[in-house]
Amino acid sequence: MTDGSRTFTTTETSFAVVHAIENADGATFSELKSQLQLSKSTLYYHLTTLEKLGYVVKERGVYQLGLRFLSHAQHAKNKEPAFDVVRSKARDLADRIPEEISFATEENGRLVVVYHNIGGSAMTDFKIGQYLHMHVTASGKMLLAEKPEERVDEIIDRWGLPKFTENTITDRDALKAELELVRERGYAINDEEQREGLRSVGAKITKPNGYVLGGLAVDGATYRMTDEQIEEQTVEQLFDTIAEIEAELD
């Protein structure tokens, strides 16, 4: 059993194998052994167990993730019916503007991507289910701004403020000052803080009971997402879509 800080090493290893296979889009035994630096017997044990349970399949010497994961993904996807409303309206927005649209929510102090549509560009490499640090994304900063300072400190203590670009906010006090600005204007901006050449604008989606469902963001190239574009068009488009979403939420 765990005591809140300890975990099962075998469980962590099995998930490390799963993640390695996913990130490589399939890998041979030798490739996994080299990447994970596990002994042959340890890697064989985990692969055999995962294969027996249907989470991994072996095709022509290459290990791939099994379809068993689909049932878990479907269960997670359907746990919040409101996500379907968000996806529908986000697709409509993506059809109207030449930018990427993403929707993400917070889970255990990180941002998890629930929906992503590349629209007319492909500036990000977001994947559904991908976890991101909150301090480098527009939606993440928006959601952090909704939390009490004690919770923000807990998230920083756990995940840190790693640097991704020269614009990344890596100082705790500077981030808190940024979050205060987010609260004042009602939306957040990612100004090349996660990836050079990418700017994003994000705002929260709130259910009728006051629960913050997540953040909807518009992501695009810096030469298109100028301050003028953001202030005169993007923010309005974003808020209009969020209003449509919130009008349909129970």
Results as ranks from 00 to 15, higher is better:
L216A: 04
L213G: 03
Q237T: 12
E80N: 01
S30Y: 07
E196Q: 12
Y45S: 10
V201W: 02
R6M: 07
M142E: 03
G210H: 08
E99W: 09
D3E: 03
E180K: 13
D219M: 11
E80K: 05
D227E: 13
K127I: 06
F126E: 03
V18N: 06
T42I: 02
L144W: 03
S5G: 03
A16Y: 04
D219C: 15
G186K: 06
E12W: 09
A174E: 13
H19S: 10
E51Q: 14
T222Q: 04
P148G: 09
T105D: 06
L198S: 08
R110V: 12
G140F: 12
Q35A: 11
E244K: 04
G160E: 04
V86C: 00
E228M: 04
D3K: 01
G160F: 09
F164T: 14
N117L: 07
L213Q: 00
E244P: 01
L65S: 00
R151S: 13
E107Y: 11
A138E: 08
G210N: 09
T10S: 10
L43I: 00
E106A: 15
A76N: 05
F15T: 09
D92K: 01
K77T: 05
I245M: 00
M225D: 07
L161Y: 11
E193L: 15
L249S: 03
Y131C: 13
S14K: 15
S139D: 10
K204F: 06
K207V: 00
G26N: 02
E149V: 15
D92Y: 03
G220Q: 02
Y223H: 08
G4L: 07
I169D: 07
